[in-house]
């Protein structure tokens, strides 16, 4: 598991860790049941305090991305991953619906919209 934190970023370190692990889970790089490094190990590797990694793990646990077993460590949870994906899909859907509505108001055709989407998608790659 690779995590890169910036000490000069405005974003708090625990949030950086939270966001990066969350991304690894959503993209499927970390899979259900896989174990995370211990809080103390991660703190040592990143040269940060234990309480910072603890906070990140607590947030991940609170939001259902991971679960902890006392004495064994933290693991990636499953059903919540699907939930996350669903949630993300829903968010994408909503935004697309809004885009379609706007397009319709402006009289943009589906073909034109598709083209625009393709262009934007490629641009971002």
């Amino acid at each position: 598991m690779q995590i890169i934190i910036s000490n000069s970023s405005k974003e708090p370190i625990y949030e950086q860790i939270y966001a990066q692990i969350k991304k690894l889970i959503i993209t499927g790089e970390l899979q259900e049941g896989q174990s995370l490094p211990s809080m103390r190990q991660l703190a040592k590797d990143l040269e940060i305090s234990v309480i910072t990694t603890k906070r990140a793990y607590e947030e991940l646990e609170k939001n259902g991305f991971i679960y902890s077993i006392v004495g064994k460590g933290s693991f990636i949870s499953e059903q919540n991953m699907e939930m996350v994906k669903e949630r993300k899909m829903k968010a994408i859907e909503e935004k697309l619906v809004a885009a379609i509505q706007n397009s319709k108001e402006m009289g943009i055709s589906l073909a034109e919209l598709k083209e625009m989407l393709t262009l934007l998608y490629m641009e971002d790659e």
Binding site: N7, R40, K44, E47, S49, I51
Partner: peptide, 28 residues
Amino acid sequence: LHDLMQNGDKTIFFSTHITTDLDRIADY
């Protein structure tokens, strides 16, 4: 000190006025 903290049964209390040292290690 990071190595020492690995199993979680040790506690470290240290005074310093070089506060940048604390950024990397201090929990409280």
